[in-house]
Design a protein around this nucleic acid. Sequence first.
DNA 1: TTGAAAGCGCTAACAG
DNA 2: CTGTTAGCGCTTTCAA
Lengths: 339, 339
Amino acid sequence: MPPTQKELAKLAGVSSGTVSNVISGVTAVSERSRRKVLDAIKALNYQPNLIARSLRTNRTNTLGMVIPDITVPFFARVVRGAESAAREAGYFLSVLDSESNHTRETAIMGVLRSQRVEGVLLVTAGGHKWSEQESAALLAGVPIVCLDRLPIGLDVDSICVDDARASEMAVMHLIERGHRRIAVITGPLTLQNEKERLRGYRQAMQRSGLDVDPDLIWKGSFEQEDVAALCRAGLANPKSRPTAIFATNGVTSLAALRAMYAMRVTTPKDIAYVTFDELASEEFFRPGITSVVQPAYEIGHRAVEVLLRRIAGGAAARPLERVRLPAKLIERESSSKAL
Amino acid sequence: MPPTQKELAKLAGVSSGTVSNVISGVTAVSERSRRKVLDAIKALNYQPNLIARSLRTNRTNTLGMVIPDITVPFFARVVRGAESAAREAGYFLSVLDSESNHTRETAIMGVLRSQRVEGVLLVTAGGHKWSEQESAALLAGVPIVCLDRLPIGLDVDSICVDDARASEMAVMHLIERGHRRIAVITGPLTLQNEKERLRGYRQAMQRSGLDVDPDLIWKGSFEQEDVAALCRAGLANPKSRPTAIFATNGVTSLAALRAMYAMRVTTPKDIAYVTFDELASEEFFRPGITSVVQPAYEIGHRAVEVLLRRIAGGAAARPLERVRLPAKLIERESSSKAL
DNA sequence: TTGAAAGCGCTAACAG
DNA sequence: CTGTTAGCGCTTTCAA
């Protein structure tokens, strides 16, 4: 059993209250008492019991974070950013993985509430609409900031990349290189950000006076097989094949590339290719894939800042923040050949 | 303020103890009371306060995990494995990132103790020896299991790949393809696992009756510049250049490849190459790099099992477990050309 | 500047 | 089966 404050107080020959004062530093304590307490802390290797402290103060100094999959590099970087921001502000961050499962996600939110975290950073598993009931329960609980994948039917502070704009930029890049028949392959359109990215594609086409051919809108998912089927259907005939593809997220994109390569359709030779998200250690990826890169670390970092403002400000005290950050286009080989 | 058990009890018209019994399910409760309590829980959207429960029961049902960098894919997968094992056992897992910094690592261990986690999974930042004092303090605290990078001067349960064996296997693979002058480039040799991997290299050479040329042992680090300098020195002269390189970890390996490519030394054309660890989405990495692949998920998963046994068994009750898992060699292009 | 004491929300013993 | 109660380790009045 770890030593308690009481034992510490006894050893130091002072009262438990004095020990507390020494540790918190709020109330003045005589130098003599301070010394004795400090010595006793060393002697016993005392570590204050944060559980007891939290129960008493009703503060945990902890933020929760829910993400769909820590092994996705983008999320790992977001977590890093959030962690460092939390630490800078003197908070702990408790990260839990929902394994892209909404049921588990809901369970986790419950656990975090039970742990009395002071706020939650949420990257939803996606693909579902929060019911009125869920939503109400959530909003009545701790403050929430949503990142990246914004939930449908949940009105909270949020932060993500300006998806439509980023997407538009990527497609414009292809158009500028002479492409007219540009296919877009998306993730599940139940996700808000996927919808936005598709919107950006449409905008780029329309603003450039190009037709949006429904046959070139390939509504995909995160499943290898779905994506492969779409690619096979869309690329089978070299005549009607698009001259360029834009993939709206990294997971779908890897699946698409895999399918293309299996069909011996290569980039940039047979088709130009641009993707949302970095796919890997890009410098060794051959050919290099032109990518829309999100400021992942910053998204995590700023999400914590927004959350802390919300915690300080209270639920209704301030308007909802909706931060939209710009993404960058990194040009590489896959889109290097002008048509 | 979230509702408390007392308020709940009042609403349900029973005592607080009965509420507790309903929730824990340990003591029998009449169906009537049960109903009333359950209804009240719904009505108030009650979530038990785990902080209070922990203070009372002296149990947190939480394990801590300290890793050097969540953005390293290997660690992310280890975390996933640990998380799922923890969940299966009804534990929470609290993951903290030391940012490869021993000072921060020590601070984190203190925090985890303060949070009264029941055990800790530790991947040390490495590069330091734990002082007698640190070690003693640590061992007196919660049970610890070390993963992957085993600490020096800390006697605890541990789990990692059989590094020497895995290394030997990789080097044998090169020898079988006719290589005689094989360089090894390592990470910091202050890390136990790096030492082991170097030992494996030596073993393979010696068992095959080959000389171990000290000039072919490149003692590197995780720093791009150090590694680049070693590569430049070792590869400058095409005559005396080794015919193959074995890199003992992923981070160093990426740095080495970068340096090689900058020098226009390519693999497999100019030199054969084998590395410890997967470097990225290997199927798109060109050329594909022959790799020693570790069972990352399993390492995390089994580490939790070991830790739970230790928690159940007590400090001295059982002998130290030292689990060593086999790694696999995945052959790819970079070592495809026999000499 | 210090000590005594109340009480955070919960569980577990105990008496009824 | 149920209510009462003590107390987990801490912070925070309040008096001295």
